Computed example of a mutant assay.
Amino acid sequence: MSSRLSEFLAGCRDEAPLQLGVVPFGMLYGIGALAAGMPPWLAQAASAVVFAGAAQLVIVQMLAAGAGALPIGLTAGLLNLRHMLYSVSMAEHVRHLPRRWRMLLAYLLTDEAYAVAILRYQTRGRPETGPDHRHWYFLGCGFTLWATWQLSTAAGLLFGATVPAEWDIDFAVPLTFIALLTLLMRERAGQAAALVAAVATLAMAALPFRLGLVVAIVLGLLAGVMAAKRSRP
């Protein structure tokens, strides 16, 4: 087996356990999209193009509430600001790649893919001799999540109405992010971001319209970026 294929398959294998939380997460989005009045084809296309679980859930919830395009766009953008932290952390590992590779990996850079791939880069350094194929591991992580998200969205669109209400699959959203937190807390940037965001959330919980959560996201992001820059050799 070639080193490229072995890295890709290793990424798929290591990403697989997180899909237990992603499947009900994607089904929730599909169910919510139908409830918001989105055509099934558009809901599925959004999973392929937007490919942002938390933002997609918020978008369909705001659509159902009758929110306008501007507040929906701003909210989704703020939710995805955390990807700037992921990008800063990953940049040093992928900057040597051709542009087509960087664009593909940027598209696949999600919470779950980052949490698994960054550990690979941190625990296994760049080989002293021979080509570096770790980006194929990253690709395996991202592809596994992407495929699961598409299939779980389709399952929500097709079978969501038949899911018993007592199953309460809403648990998947916090469960998924708790699992990611345990992975990301292993590095200093993740620790700084989590600590600052947690303190800010508690300190500003009284702000109206849940603005405290938005501010906490931004402050946590800035803390993580600063910690990542300081930890560079």
Rank of each mutant, 00 (worst) to 15 (best):
residue 2 S to W: 00
residue 3 S to E: 08
residue 3 S to C: 03
residue 5 L to Y: 03
residue 5 L to E: 00
residue 9 L to C: 06
residue 9 L to S: 01
residue 11 G to T: 00
residue 13 R to D: 00
residue 14 D to N: 11
residue 20 L to H: 06
residue 22 V to A: 05
residue 24 P to N: 08
residue 25 F to C: 01
residue 26 G to S: 04
residue 27 M to V: 12
residue 29 Y to H: 10
residue 31 I to N: 05
residue 34 L to Y: 08
residue 35 A to M: 03
residue 39 P to L: 05
residue 44 Q to S: 13
residue 47 S to T: 12
residue 48 A to V: 15
residue 48 A to R: 11
residue 52 A to P: 02
residue 52 A to E: 13
residue 55 A to K: 03
residue 55 A to M: 10
residue 57 L to C: 01
residue 61 Q to R: 11
residue 68 G to V: 04
residue 68 G to R: 12
residue 68 G to H: 11
residue 70 L to P: 02
residue 71 P to A: 02
residue 72 I to A: 00
residue 72 I to Y: 01
residue 73 G to Y: 04
residue 76 A to H: 03
residue 76 A to T: 07
residue 77 G to M: 14
residue 81 L to V: 15
residue 82 R to W: 13
residue 82 R to F: 10
residue 86 Y to R: 03
residue 86 Y to L: 03
residue 89 S to N: 14
residue 90 M to D: 06
residue 93 H to M: 11
residue 93 H to D: 12
residue 93 H to K: 14
residue 93 H to P: 05
residue 97 L to Q: 06
residue 97 L to Y: 07
residue 99 R to G: 14
residue 99 R to M: 15
residue 101 W to E: 06
residue 103 M to Y: 15
residue 103 M to H: 15
residue 107 Y to E: 05
residue 109 L to G: 02
residue 112 E to A: 13
residue 115 A to R: 00
residue 115 A to F: 02
residue 115 A to L: 00
residue 116 V to Y: 08
residue 120 R to T: 02
residue 121 Y to C: 04
residue 121 Y to H: 11
residue 122 Q to H: 14
residue 124 R to N: 11
residue 125 G to E: 13
residue 126 R to A: 15
residue 127 P to R: 09
residue 128 E to D: 13
residue 130 G to E: 08
residue 137 Y to N: 00
residue 139 L to M: 08
residue 141 C to W: 01
residue 142 G to H: 01
residue 143 F to I: 05
residue 146 W to T: 01
residue 146 W to V: 03
residue 147 A to E: 05
residue 150 Q to P: 09
residue 152 S to P: 01
residue 156 G to Q: 06
residue 157 L to A: 08
residue 159 F to G: 07
residue 160 G to R: 09
residue 161 A to V: 10
residue 162 T to R: 15
residue 164 P to G: 07
residue 169 I to H: 05
residue 170 D to W: 15
residue 171 F to H: 09
residue 173 V to I: 13
residue 175 L to Q: 05
residue 176 T to S: 12
residue 176 T to P: 00
residue 178 I to T: 11
residue 180 L to K: 12
residue 181 L to Y: 12
residue 183 L to T: 07
residue 184 L to V: 14
residue 186 R to E: 12
residue 195 L to Y: 07
residue 198 A to K: 10
residue 201 T to Y: 10
residue 205 A to P: 01
residue 206 A to Y: 08
residue 208 P to R: 11
residue 208 P to K: 10
residue 210 R to F: 04
residue 210 R to W: 05
residue 211 L to V: 04
residue 216 A to G: 03
residue 217 I to Y: 05
residue 217 I to W: 09
residue 218 V to F: 14
residue 218 V to W: 11
residue 220 G to I: 02
residue 222 L to M: 14
residue 225 V to Y: 08
residue 226 M to Q: 12
residue 228 A to V: 06
residue 228 A to M: 12
residue 231 S to F: 13
residue 232 R to F: 10
residue 232 R to D: 09
residue 233 P to I: 09
